[in-house]
Design a binder for these strands. Structure first.
Length: 726
DNA sequence: GATAGGGTTGTTTTT
DNA sequence: CAACCCTATC
């Protein structure tokens, strides 16, 4: 048997999607229609919402303010379509995260009593992936491509820099990371390299630099093609390209009758273009987009909320609806939200109609420092619990991942269970990446990034040698076979400057790896790999046992997927679902936890009580944005999104000092709080509360303790460890 | 010329 | 913790 044949996945099978398999049997349809007949659209929706749902036809734009029942409306739209005998597979539902897609389908399921299988639901990227796996060959690449994330794309750009011998010594030339960022903006925003540089990186506005960059981008592109890799931007580019061919566009678009897009304010030019093309060929131009310009917070990724405003101009008969009734927050919280967002100049005014009864004013608390801030939050949480709130009714929402560190510590101190959606990602830890590198090779043996990771694990092998080893491989016909059967690889290895013993080790490892690996049995493959990797981890790290545990988590998670390809796709595309750190559940009964999250990740969610900490200058707004720029207004929208997550109680906190890795830094009150009308909140000062002071000074959170607790991941999955024995 | 190891510095937001 | 730079060493 030819090794290559069984290492590479067999011809692209029917693409199976992890959550929604296409399976439209008659019995399912009957069940759906039974469920649908019980829905009372009139009663369940308000007038505005009902108007939208009642006649879903042609182009529709829905401006939906925070808490206006946006998700509810979309869910009922899907139900309504199904009730009109639209097949699930004719509906495309584009959401901002795959998690959001899963949740929406779940809500449809709850509504109609059965899971509507076959809906094309997911992010732009994950839907693109479904097409690309299918049509890869017509686009000129192989269907077993690997999706690379931003970190890998940066590594690839670095490899490109080395190949083109670019020097980046004295800040006069963009770093590989910046270069990739420029390229990404240019692709997503439909701007030339030169325009992008003038727009975002004016320090590099120089014709020599630009022409050199263009040269680099060509090499980068070729390298990706050669290694059979696809980055996030490519997914959109290629999908868009598919739609440029009339025949292909019709073929794709004609399978859809209805396209619904959520969070349209966060689409970029390219995504908008894709939607435009799709809607052109969709049978009746049925396209419904929902969004809120005030909640556009992804400008750093090329998102442009103008897309939503121009949508109605582009389609002749576009109907515009406004959902203005806020069901989420008490009037006091809405007052504060409105009072904040009005400071943004480029904003389309809309008045939210308050529907909830009078509640309590938001509270602003100035604390001595970030440590005290953490204690105040933890104490308040305990008080709230005494008042009858559950921990899971409460969220702490912040601007940046590292803002949670002290708060986490204090929650641990007070034994409050919490769950974190932010921070150093599980999948980016070195050993996890090592494991995934092996899986990627199995899927696509041409991937240099992965080979390089694997080779570099051996003593004496660094970047250069690894790159040479990859050269040997890629210049050998049938490389994998030659490793095992032929001596060619071995002979060429001898020409490299590495110790004999290491050569042997490399060969032995590769043979073991390649012969033991069989495609489509991801769990067994992974367990074998873990055994191999454990040896390396033991030598390198004192905490190797923790790391092995991480790897086992990967193994458990992989069981949800039938092929390595699907597993790797899911890891690349579903990061937000996977990266969750859970702490303190075990020592506090089975209480559901408090949520700690970045505001970005909290989008679309709500809690009864919300804390927004770190409202001090240089933290929130972040020191990365300049005053009075469009970025600054985006920063304010982030604040707005945070505020509008709260249903009943909102606490804003501003520390006056923060303990850094290097000493203590003084902080000024955040402009976002300073500019608020004092009438919209009440201020609480803890500085005079001596009892709390005593409490704080008696605490001594040593550095030791911080280290011990940080980044300790408890199992993400409940599956028993016994699953993994052998 | 290349790797290993020590020391330093510092953290936006995400598909 | 990790990404970075610098230097000792093979």
């Amino acid at each position: 048997m030819n090794l290559n044949d069984y290492l590479r996945p067999t011809k692209n099978k029917e693409i199976s999607f992890d959550v929604f398999n296409e399976d439209n049997t008659i019995s399912t349809e009957t069940l759906i229609s039974e469920g649908l007949s019980k829905i009372d659209f009139r009663k369940d929706l308000n007038n505005q919402q009902f108007d939208v749902v009642n006649e879903i036809k042609g182009p529709q734009l829905i401006i939906a303010g925070a808490g206006s029942g946006k998700t509810r409306t979309i869910v009922y739209c899907v139900a309504k379509l199904l009730s009109e005998n639209v097949k699930p597979s004719e509906i495309m539902l584009v959401t901002f995260t795959n998690k959001a897609a899963t949740e929406m389908i779940k809500r449809v399921e709850i509504l109609i009593g059965i899971k509507p299988k076959g809906i094309w639901a997911g992010t732009f990227h994950s839907i693109a992936n479904r097409f690309l796996r299918q049509y890869a060959e017509s686009l000129g690449f192989k269907p077993n491509y690997i999706i690379i994330d931003e970190a890998d794309a940066n590594i690839l750009m670095k490899i490109t820099y080395n190949a083109t011998e670019v020097q980046t010594d004295n800040n006069s030339f963009p770093t590989p990371k910046t270069a990739r960022k420029i390229l990404s903006y240019s692709i997503n925003c439909n701007k030339t390299i030169s325009e992008t540089i003038k727009w975002k990186y004016s320090q590099y506005d120089d014709s020599k630099i630009i022409s050199k960059l263009k040269e680099i981008y060509k090499v980068y592109k070729n390298k990706k093609a050669k290694d059979n890799l696809i980055d996030f931007d490519d997914m959109l580019v290629f999908w868009n390209r598919l739609l440029d061919e009339r025949f292909m566009a019709q073929r794709i678009a004609s399978t859809f009758n209805f396209i619904l897009v959520d969070e349209y304010q966060d689409t970029n030019y390219l995504q908008d273009e894709i939607i435009r093309k799709l809607s052109k060929y969709t049978e009746k131009g049925n396209i419904l987009v929902v969004g809120d310009d005030a909640q556009s917070i992804y400008g750093f990724r090329g998102a442009n909320f103008q897309n939503i405003m121009e949508f109605s101009k582009r389609f002749e008969n576009c109907r515009i609806y406004k959902l203005t009734q806020n069901y989420r927050s008490v009037p006091e919280i809405l007052n504060l939200a409105n009072d904040s967002i009005k400071h943004n100049k480029s904003q389309f005014r809309k008045e939210m109609v308050k529907t909830r009864k009078k509640g309590v004013k938001p509270v602003h608390i100035i604390s001595e420092n970030d440590e005290q801030q953490a204690i105040i939050i933890a104490n308040k949480i305990i008080d709230l619990q005494k008042d009858g709130y559950n921990f899971s009714d409460i969220a702490v929402l912040y601007r940046a991942g590292f803002h949670s560190l002290r708060i986490e510590l204090e929650l641990q101190n007070q034994n409050i269970p919490y769950i974190v959606h932010s921070g150093v990602s599980f999948l980016e830890r070195a050993h996890v990446k090592d494991l995934l590198a092996h899986l990627r090779i199995i899927q696509n043996p041409e991937d240099e990034i992965s080979w390089s990771r694997i080779f570099s694990q051996f003593q004496g092998v660094g970047k250069k040698i690894a790159s040479k080893m990859f050269d040997i491989l890629s210049n050998t016909t049938d490389p994998l076979n030659s490793i095992i059967s032929d001596s060619l690889f071995k002979r060429k290895l001898q020409n490299l400057k590495i110790a004999k013993g290491v050569q042997e080790e490399v060969l032995l490892f590769l043979k073991g790896f390649l012969t033991s690996v069989k495609v489509d049995k991801s769990k067994e493959v992974i367990m074998k790999l873990i055994n191999q990797l454990t040896k390396h981890l033991k030598l390198q790290y004192s905490n190797w046992q923790d790391r092995v545990e991480d790897l086992k988590q990967i193994a458990i998670y992989s069981q949800n997927y039938d092929t390595i390809q699907n597993f790797l796709d899911a890891l690349a595309l579903n990061k937000s679902t996977i990266e969750t750190k859970t702490v303190g559940l075990s020592n506090n009964g089975n209480q559901s936890p408090v949520t700690l999250s970045t505001i970005h990740r909290a989008k679309g969610l709500e809690w009864k009580v919300v804390f927004i900490p770190m409202l001090s200058e240089n933290l929130f707004p972040s020191n990365k944005v300049k005053m009075n720029t469009s970025d600054y207004e985006e920063e304010r929208r982030v604040f707005y999104v945070g505020i509008t997550r709260a249903k009943e109680k909102l606490y804003l906190l501003s520390p006056q000092k923060i303990k850094n890795f290097k000493g203590v830094k003084d902080l000024n009150l955040s402009q976002f709080v300073k500019e608020l009308n004092p009438k919209v909140y009440s201020r609480l000062s803890y500085q005079k509360d001596s009892s709390l002071f005593d409490e704080i000074s008696s605490r001594n959170l040593s550095q030791e303790k911080i280290k011990k607790n940080q980044n300790k991941y408890l199992p993400l999955f409940t599956t028993a460890d016994s699953l993994l024995k052998d």
